[in-house]
Design a protein around this nucleic acid. Structure first.
Lengths: 210, 210
DNA sequence: TGAATGACGAATTGACAAACTCGTCACTTG
DNA sequence: CAAGTGACGAGTTTGTCAATTCGTCATTCA
């Protein structure tokens, strides 16, 4: 049942998706998202999703390879939306070192908020981390890209040191963020993320300043 | 069944432990440790432990409140031994900033080693983290103390900055180590801990240097 | 009196069958 | 032929009941 990244796609080839196919995918994802938010991923059956958009389960498999693929898509969208929002916010903060602090706090806050107010979605994300779906990888890449832009900016303005290789710095910073957006950790250890995030953010900032 | 820290002790009061009682506790822990190492915590019954030291299960409960209490004690000892070893090593490294790097690498290595070569023990430790036993708390305190001594030394030799409050720095550094000794995380995400640990160690070092 | 235990209730685990879910394929329909 | 489906096998989850295991207590023994 567990599918690796190496599994070949069985759904129709992406290149042949017409606009109406895209709409179908969208409808599927919206239905899935709603059901998962209410009942959780586990208790959402493919039949449930099919029923709400008035299609047979068999036909759904023309648009997604598996139930997991639907879950991954829902999850990817959620994480991607978060990263977009973070990106927006960061662009409006002029000071790079303030950006760093903001990023840590944002991750901690959004993480806790999801845990408190949207538990079923949290569970989905936790599962995606736990089972190494593609969504966390995509999320990491997006976060890394945001960090890179901030750190680059800091180096250009002369606020940040320039001796350490840029990529090394960025990756290291991203590692330190991992504790603050990690559903699996959170559900096992609901400590005071906010305060910890601030302290680590300040530490990271000190390591960046020159 | 789940006992919180608030639960009152049912085993005999600690103040009344005679040396021979201590020996009994030791025997119990050694038997438990051996069984757990072979069969895992779950499959180790209190009867198993009692049998190997030729006592009844009922009598064991004079020395430990519960099976979990035995597990915690075993776990505490394991973690404490690791911290002692780390402390020893760190004392023999003169440069504080080398100490920092060493600590991160030690944690990552020992973590992986336990996962690879002593899986059943790893599972026990993972459970202790997962269920918030007292052992991780004790471990954290010991690690924090080691970090404090190193950072203090670095500040005294003028190698490390002295503006940030000592406690804040120490706690922040400890947070960043959490990713590298965390059985729960490891079993879900067997990434390349060693390299990550090095990169984060260097970042932390940069934040400490003045 | 202190060391130690057998026997026992409550709670947990394991085993196994029934019900359900996933995903495929041949087939219908317009 | 494109859009869509019912029916089905493989594999998984759920429910149930018996067997274990945990932890307590009254009791024995030296």
């Amino acid at each position: 049942m567990k599918t690796d990244g190496t599994a070949r796609s069985k759904a129709r080839d992406i290149s042949s998706w017409s606009p109406s196919d895209q709409a179908r995918r969208d409808a599927i994802l919206r239905a899935a998202s709603a059901h998962v938010r209410h009942y959780g991923y586990q208790k959402t059956t493919v039949a449930d999703i099919a029923k709400t958009i008035h299609l047979s389960t068999a036909y759904l498999y023309n648009f997604f390879d598996s139930k997991q693929a639907i879950g991954e898509a829902v999850c990817t969208r959620i994480l991607s939306d978060l990263m977009s929002e973070l990106d927006q916010s960061v662009r409006q903060i002029t000071s790079p070192s303030e950006c760093i602090v903001f990023i840590f706090q944002y991750l901690a806050e959004v993480s806790i908020k999801m845990f408190r107010d949207d538990r079923k979605i949290h569970d989905l994300v936790a599962r995606s981390f736990h089972e190494h779906w593609t969504s966390p990888t995509a999320y990491n890449a997006e976060l890394l890209s945001i960090l890179k832009s901030v750190i680059l900016r800091g180096r250009e303005t002369g606020e940040f040191e320039r001796k350490t290789p840029l990529d090394e710095t960025c990756e290291a910073v991203r590692y330190t963020t991992e504790t603050f957006f990690h559903p699996v950790l959170l559900e096992q250890n609901p400590r005071n993320l906010i305060d910890e995030a601030l302290m680590v953010a300040l530490l990271v900032r000190r390591s960046l300043l020159c």
